[in-house]
Design a protein around this nucleic acid. Structure first.
Lengths: 230, 230
DNA sequence: TGGTCCATCAACCAGTTGATTGACACAACC
DNA sequence: GGTTGTGTCAATCAACTGGTTGATGGACCA
């Protein structure tokens, strides 16, 4: 007999978590760990249930199907990704270049849970086939880019970064850089030191006046690219 | 009975392709198409064989195991990724800013086969568990970054980009940007227009003299931006 | 003409997979 | 005390999965 709809989805209010909420969380945590270890390719409902310490049937009591479990996982990953490091008590905010703080925070997220890299990639990869995941990551990217664009705007008007910058396009450069850097580091953790490359990006963003003088300083050739791309 | 070792791996010389080579290629093409459609998660040896028009046993005649097939796929994908657009007969090379040409070429690769995005991502994602794939992508990234670094060096000494740039770190910014941009576009093809963001990156790289004067500066500003993103 | 590979297939196998079922313990409620 | 709803499990199922086997036909060679 088909059971009733999935029991209470995670409640967002401040109410105390029910047994069901805890069990759901356990199952999702188990799924997260297993995807990190074996990928979605190797994800088995039995293993998830076993790691959570329950029977397969119990898993199906909380998640109608494996598909449904993965949807839950997308939400978990999104939450992990948008988490930000706790601000130490006496820390003074780094106003100078908030983009740098943003990068630091991003690296913190991935350092705080080394599994996030691969699970996130796994789900993003899946999103080309899974509309639910795609939509989730679409809004995630949109929101993220909006935030970075705002930070760029603020920094530009504060004079900490160059003013001839399109915040929207600049944000895409920054977010794409973060994603690509994580991916490269995933393949080879020793490929480079994030902060070194962050320095470089920061230098690119810095206002002209604060940049190192050009080598040899010959007559600045005012060469201007006029061609459209392609 | 265990069959002899896998028949002739793809020959690299100029010799005419044998039947075996062709069959191998057919099978890999089929696998590529299927991974694009269903991901590694949904890859079945039977389906690969069927799409290639042969029996499962024939697949196993060429590839010892599914694992082995995927290893072959990694090579195929690497070949597709490193392919570059044919240079039109009368085209004059764009010397001015070779990085822009590099970006154009990168976009061309992904436009020429829309499936590459997702298959590449799928395999990179897998590489956190698969040493063979990891090694392949590691060298791929290394080589790629080396090339971009060289291009940056050349452009810097030609004066087409700023000279206060660390080519190594700069290359990581560029390659990471490309990877991240592809990933974001994979989730949402309408997220942005690559060339718009390329413009922005190009502007960041341009020598100081050619950049728009800072706000209030009286000098004639050579602003070349033509399109607003979004 | 007979032998030897190469390439291919239909049929098969053992183990796995997602999902279901019916039963049961427990607590809350009436 | 009886009823009802929640949470859990052992056992089971049908479909699938990667991989194997023995046979078969054709090309090449002696």
């Amino acid at each position: 007999m088909k059971r009733s709809a999935a029991p209470s989805a995670p409640r967002d209010g401040a109410t105390a978590p029910t047994t069901a909420d805890l069990r759901r969380e356990q199952l999702l945590d188990a799924a997260f760990a297993l995807v990190a270890e074996r990928g979605l390719e190797g994800l088995r409902t039995r293993d998830v249930a076993a790691r959570a310490g329950v029977n397969v049937a119990t898993l199906h009591y909380y998640f109608a199907s494996k598909e449904d479990l993965i949807v839950g996982l997308v939400d978990l990953v999104r939450a992990k990704f948008t988490a930000r490091p706790p601000i130490p008590a006496g820390a003074k905010p780094r106003q100078e270049l908030s983009i740098r703080a943003h990068l630091d925070a991003a690296w913190w997220v991935f350092t705080s849970d080394p599994r996030l890299d691969s699970v996130l990639l796994e789900l993003v990869s899946r999103s080309s086939r899974d509309p639910v995941a795609r939509e989730a990551f679409r809004t995630l990217h949109d929101d993220w880019n909006r935030i970075v664009a705002d930070e760029l705007r603020a920094a530009a008007s504060a004079g900490t970064i160059r003013s001839d910058l399109d915040p929207i396009a600049g944000a895409r450069v920054v977010t794409s850089y973060i994603i690509g850097a994580r991916l490269q580091l995933g393949v080879n953790p020793m490929a480079f030191v994030p902060s070194d490359v962050d320095d470089e990006l920061e230098r690119l963003l810095r206002p002209a006046g604060e940049r190192q003088a050009r080598k040899g300083g010959g007559a600045p050739t005012a060469r201007i690219r006029t061609s459209k791309s392609r």
